[in-house]
Every structure is written in structure tokens, then in C-alpha cells.
């Protein structure tokens, strides 16, 4: 019995203005996988996340989102562009996660109010409901965004450096949520830099350095020679670069 495939990359090339950031990526992510995406800065990790979420069109190849509608995908971008000065409360920001259920006009009924309260409790922010988001600390803000992710009830969850600049307690609380999603058979892809954390919590890893360096069980992927290989990646976009010969 094999697990069904959730995402498949076919000779995927991503980039900006024809300069590739991710080059010829092939492979598949199984449903329910907990996959870390690692690699040096500029390796194309964020670009890959953006493309999976549907916000970026591939330069070549394809991403197959097997049976997934765009609403089944929840995406937390790196340093999410939330306007912290906007006068909105934690409760209302978290409630936005219900968009899929409530849409443009749908009321937020009693059941949903309970869901929102549960999500806020799950990230440990009970008591902060009425606080304006502008008064939150960085960690509290990230907890708020995770509560919103909880409500989105997505089958594929994309996290771009979700634990940056957070203290150990916050990271461990948020990791509990990630493990909970994994237990619920949701597929989670997370861009991460902390190899210790990846080794401890993520069964699978994709090591990316524009092209895929290694992809598989974390212990094998994060072997010293692979990491050395990834570090050597220094392909700056070149103005005069010729069209890629490997392109079909």
C-alpha cells in the first residue's frame, strides 16, 4: 500500500524575469508528509513556497497539486506582510482564517466563535482577543498567525521560516501545532535554517540550492557532504546568461 501523492514537481523551473531561482526540480511529496526545506540564502526556498501556493507562475515545468483546490492550501509567507498599524484586534485577525467557510458575507455563527476561541487558546493567546495587533510582540504575532492557520483547516500547509527570531518556548509551542497537523495527516512543508530542529522534528528534508541537492530522509539529506555541496552554490543571476540548454 503506497501513500497517495499530494504534490508533484515535473522539471520545475522558477524565477523572476527569466533568471531561474529554482532549476529543474523533479519529485513528489506524499500526502501527510512533514517535509523541511533547507538550503543557503538565495537557494530558492521561498520562491518554491510561493509557487506551490500559486502566487508565482513557473518559468518551466509544472507543479501538480493532486486534488487540491487553492483553498486547500494555507501559506504563511516569510515575515508575513501584515500591516501591524491597522486598527484590528487579535480576534478579528484570527477570524479571517474562516474565510473559506464564511466567504464574503457569511455570518460567523456560534460554532465558529467557539472555533476561533479554541484556535486562540491553542496558541496560548487566551486573554489577548481584544488587543490591537499593533501591541503584540513578534512571538505573539506569530502565534496569532498560527491560530489563523489553524482555522484555515487546510490540507497542505506551507510555512516560510516560521520560527525566525522567536524564543525557545514559542518555537516549541508552535512546533506542537505542526506535529498536531502532521498527526491529522495534513501535508506540511516548512522552510527552516535550524538543522538541529529539522533533525529532531522533520522526518524528511529537501536540500535545495537552486537545483535539488538531496531529497529524502532527513538524516541522509543533512549529511556533511551534501551540506558542503549546497554551500558551494553561488550562481548569481547573470545578465548575459544564455537560454538554458537543459530546457525542453
Amino acid at each position: 500500500m503506497s501513500t497517495p501523492i499530494q504534490l508533484r514537481f515535473r522539471d520545475l523551473t522558477l524565477g523572476y524575469e527569466r533568471h531561474p531561482a529554482v532549476h529543474h526540480l523533479d519529485g513528489a511529496v506524499e500526502e501527510g508528509a512533514l517535509l523541511a526545506v533547507c538550503g543557503p540564502n538565495g537557494a530558492g526556498k521561498s520562491t518554491l513556497m510561493k509557487a506551490i501556493s500559486g502566487a508565482l507562475r513557473p518559468l518551466g515545468g509544472a507543479i501538480e497539486r493532486c486534488g487540491l483546490d487553492s483553498r486547500d492550501i494555507a501559506y504563511l509567507p516569510q515575515g508575513a506582510e501584515v500591516d501591524r498599524s491597522f486598527p484590528i484586534s487579535v480576534y478579528d485577525l484570527v477570524a479571517m482564517g474562516l474565510w473559506r467557510r464564511a466567504g464574503l458575507f457569511g455570518g460567523i455563527g456560534k460554532g465558529n466563535h467557539a472555533r476561533i476561541a479554541d484556535a486562540i487558546a491553542a496558541v496560548g493567546l487566551t486573554g489577548f482577543e481584544r488587543r490591537p495587533i499593533g501591541t503584540l510582540s513578534g512571538g505573539q504575532m506569530q502565534r496569532t498567525l498560527f491560530a489563523r492557520l489553524l482555522l484555515q483547516d487546510a490540507r497542505l500547509i506551507l510555512l516560510d521560516e516560521p520560527f525566525n527570531a522567536l524564543d525557545a518556548k514559542t518555537v516549541s509551542d508552535l512546533l506542537d501545532l505542526v506535529r498536531r497537523w502532521h498527526g491529522e495527516k495534513r501535508t506540511v512543508l516548512a522552510v527552516l535554517h535550524d538543522f538541529e530542529l529539522v533533525r529532531a522534528h522533520f522526518p524528511q528534508t529537501l536540500l535545495l540550492a537552486r537545483g535539488p541537492v538531496a531529497w529524502g530522509p532527513t538524516a541522509e539529506v543533512l549529511a556533511p557532504d551534501n551540506l558542503l555541496l549546497a554551500r558551494r552554490m553561488t550562481e548569481a543571476p547573470q545578465d548575459g546568461a544564455a537560454p538554458c540548454s537543459a530546457a525542453a
Partner: peptide, 20 residues
Amino acid sequence: IIWRPLVLECVDPTFLASVS
């Protein structure tokens, strides 16, 4: 009619684009 998307586009445009 446009209240929710209008608010959300101010607060978190990336999120709005991902859901609607």
C-alpha cells in the same frame, strides 16, 4: 458588500490573495 476584502487587503494582502 466589500467590507471584508477591503479590510483584509489593508491588513494582509498576501493572505487575501491566497484565499480569494
